[in-house]
Simulated assay, not measured.
Amino acid sequence: MMSVRIALAGIGKIAGDQHVPSIAASPDWELAATVSRHGRIDGVEAFTDIERLLACRPDIEVVSLCMPPAPRFEYAAAALRAGRHVMLEKPPGATLAECVALEALAREKGVSLYATWHSREAAQVEKAGAWLRDKRLVSATIIWKEDVRRWHPGQDWIWRAGGLGVFDPGVNALSILTAILPEPVHLKAATLEVPENRETPIAASLDFAHPGGAEVTAVFDWRQQGDQTWTIDVETDAGRMRLADGGATLTIDGRKQADADGDGNALQGEYPRLYARMAKLVRSGGMDMDLSPMIHVADAFLLGRRVTVEPFDE
C-alpha cells in the first residue's frame, strides 16, 4: 500500500519530539510539507501560510495540526474546506463550539477528522479499562503534578486566556479517566488557583459526580519540584488498581503488570499509535471526535471557584 502524503502545521517542540519521528517511522505516511512561521524540517518543503500550502500542494491528502489551540480552528477549517483530512493535537480546539463546527464541516465535505488524545495510547491504559469493565467503582483519585518550567519552558501562550494553564497536562489525565471508567462522570465542583499575574490556573482540584456514588477526584498542579507525579488510583469492589507514569505502568492489587512496550516510558508508542489510528480513519472514511475530556475542562472553567495565588514567573 502506498504511503499517504501528509503536511505538518506548527513546527515546535511537540512536532519535533513526537510527530516527526512517528511519521518517519511509519510506512503509512510521507511527510510532504510543513507550515510554520518559524520552524522547518530539513529536506521537507516549507510553507508559512496554510492557504498557500493547500493551493500549491493538492496532492497532500492529510494535514496534522500541532500549533497551540487558539489559532488551530482557522487552519483546520481551511484544510477541511479544501477537502483534506485533518488530525488535531490535543486539545482539539480552543472551545467546544469550534470542535462541533469542525465536525460538521468535515461531515459536509466527507473527510476524516480526528481529535487525538495521546495519553489514551499509553502502554497500559487499554488494559486498565478492560480490568475495570466488570467491576463496581468505589473511588478514583487522579494526582497529576509536574514542573511547568521543565515541561513548558517559555511557552507564554499557556498562561493566556484559551491556553488552559494546568489543564494542558490535566486534560491528559481526563482523557485516560474518560477512556477507562465503565460509567461516565460529570463535574460537580472545582477550585482553580490562578497566579495574580496570569490568566489561567497553575493548579486545580476537581470533584466529580458518579452515577453509582463513587468518589472521583482530581488534583492538578504545575508547581511540583523533584519527582513528577502522573497517577490514577482506583478502588473497586474486587480490588485496587494504580495507573502510574501517565498510563505506562499498571499495578493491580500490588502486582505490577507486564509492560508490552517494555521500557515504562509514558510516551513510548503513543504518537505512533495515533498516526496508525489516523491512517485507518482515512482509509475507511471514518471520524473520531470524542470531546469528553474537553467537556470536563470546560465545566471546570464554568463551575470553578477561582482563588488568586502568588505570581508565577519563569
Rank of each mutant, 00 (worst) to 15 (best):
R273D: 11
T217R: 15
V282I: 14
F220S: 02
E61Q: 14
V100I: 13
M294N: 03
D42K: 10
L53R: 03
G16I: 02
F312D: 05
P182I: 10
G110S: 03
R72N: 04
R283S: 15
L113E: 07
M294E: 05
R160F: 05
F312E: 07
L54F: 08
W159G: 04
K127L: 13
A298S: 13
G165T: 03
A130V: 09
L250P: 12
K256C: 12
Q225M: 06
G264S: 05
V194T: 05
L281D: 02
D28M: 04
V4W: 13
Y275T: 02
K127S: 12
L291P: 02
A76K: 02
P58M: 09
A115E: 00
L303A: 09
W230I: 01
L177F: 13
D17N: 12
L206H: 07
W117F: 08
A276E: 13
D299F: 05
V125F: 13
S139Q: 08
R84G: 11
G226P: 09
T34N: 06
K188Q: 14
A218R: 10
P201Q: 06
S119T: 01
D134S: 12
G226D: 14
A189Q: 13
V86T: 03
E74F: 02
N172T: 00
Q124F: 04
N265P: 01
I158V: 12
D227A: 15
T229N: 09
T48I: 03
G163F: 11
D313Y: 02
A276I: 00
D259A: 09
P68A: 07
G246D: 11
S119V: 00
P201K: 06
I202N: 04
K256F: 04
A76R: 01
M2N: 12
R305I: 04
A79C: 13
R84E: 08
A214L: 11
I180K: 06
A209L: 11
A173R: 07
V166A: 14
L96T: 10
F301M: 10
V282N: 06
A9W: 09
A77T: 01
V35S: 00
E103P: 02
G254R: 03
P211R: 11
L250C: 11
R242W: 01
A55Y: 01
S284P: 01
V282G: 07
D49Y: 01
W29P: 08
A300R: 07
A161P: 00
I295S: 03
V86R: 02
R160H: 13
P182N: 10
V216L: 14
Y75P: 00
G286C: 06
D288Y: 01
A78I: 03
L177W: 13
M241I: 10
L291H: 03
G12F: 07
M241T: 06
W117P: 00
T308H: 03
V297A: 15
L174K: 06
D134Q: 11
L96W: 10
R240F: 08
A179R: 15
M67E: 05
I41F: 13
I23W: 12
